[in-house]
Design a protein around this nucleic acid. Structure first.
Length: 231
DNA sequence: CTCCCTTTGAAGTAA
DNA sequence: TTACTTCAAAGGGAG
């Protein structure tokens, strides 16, 4: 289970700050302020003097300062978005506990290199995290690309209420992320991944592009052009 | 080793 | 504004 999401009391909608029928997320841009997110302290029972006091200048912080000896954030929330900057940061974070690796204590002399703070997961990503194992078990597939296609279909097959759960969860992830790293921006990770191809995703006629774009272009219903044992 | 693939959604950039 | 791009996860496959 996602160490962060496991903290989120989304088991029910009793808190439901917004109607559950939509991915209502307008609040994040319009209402919520980066330093004073009203409702979060209640959700995560942040100690007074916890993240609420994070100053913009502390947007990134050496683990030695902000994380306890066990790598736990002062709030007690082991946020998984922090990933050691060294080596590959893509396939070894979150549930492997690697984000807790005390990379500063290993090589502390050198400049403490900013820890990589990853993007918060969106609703679909959270859904994938939760359902991936189940799909793999059902389908005997292993390749993530194939699994993700199935998950994409299943995502669309969900009811609005079912999706709303993940939208709500994602909203909280973003809010928590915002509290923990007030000055973080998605821009920070731009260009961190090296891409081999892509270049120019041009020509809309000969190259249909991704299924998503293709469906959008032709107005296809995603349900229709799928078949196979894994539905 | 590292990147690609593949999905959706959030957020960034460029026009 | 609008359109396009990048990155979040994941793990087998490819280079």
């Amino acid at each position: 289970m996602h160490p962060l999401t496991s903290l989120l009391p989304y088991s029910n909608d009793h808190f439901s700050p917004s109607p559950p029928h939509l991915p209502t997320d307008m609040s994040q841009k319009t209402g919520v302020h980066r330093h004073q997110s009203q409702d979060l302290s209640g959700y995560y029972s942040l100690p007074p003097g916890g993240v609420g006091q994070i100053t913009p200048s502390m947007s990134w912080f050496p683990h030695s300062l902000m994380l306890g000896p066990s790598g736990v954030h002062p709030t007690g929330i082991p946020h998984p978005a922090i990933v050691p900057p060294s080596g590959k940061q893509e396939h070894d974070q979150y549930d492997r506990g690697m984000y807790m690796k005390p990379q500063v204590e290993v090589k502390r002399e050198k400049e403490p290199k900013k820890p990589v703070i990853k993007k918060p997961l969106n609703a679909f990503m959270l859904y994938m995290k939760e359902m991936r194992a189940k799909v793999i078990a059902e389908c005997t597939l292993k390749e993530s690309a194939a699994i993700n296609q199935i998950l994409g279909r299943r995502w669309h097959a969900l009811t609005r209420e079912e999706q709303a759960k993940y939208y709500e969860l994602a909203r909280k992830e973003r809010q928590l992320h915002m509290q923990l790293y007030p000055t973080w921006s998605a821009r920070d990770n731009y260009g961190k991944k090296k891409r081999r191809k892509r270049e120019k995703q041009q020509d809309s006629n000969t190259d249909p592009g991704s299924p998503k774009k293709c469906r959008a272009r032709f107005g296809l219903n995603q349900q229709t052009d799928w078949c196979g044992p894994c539905r």
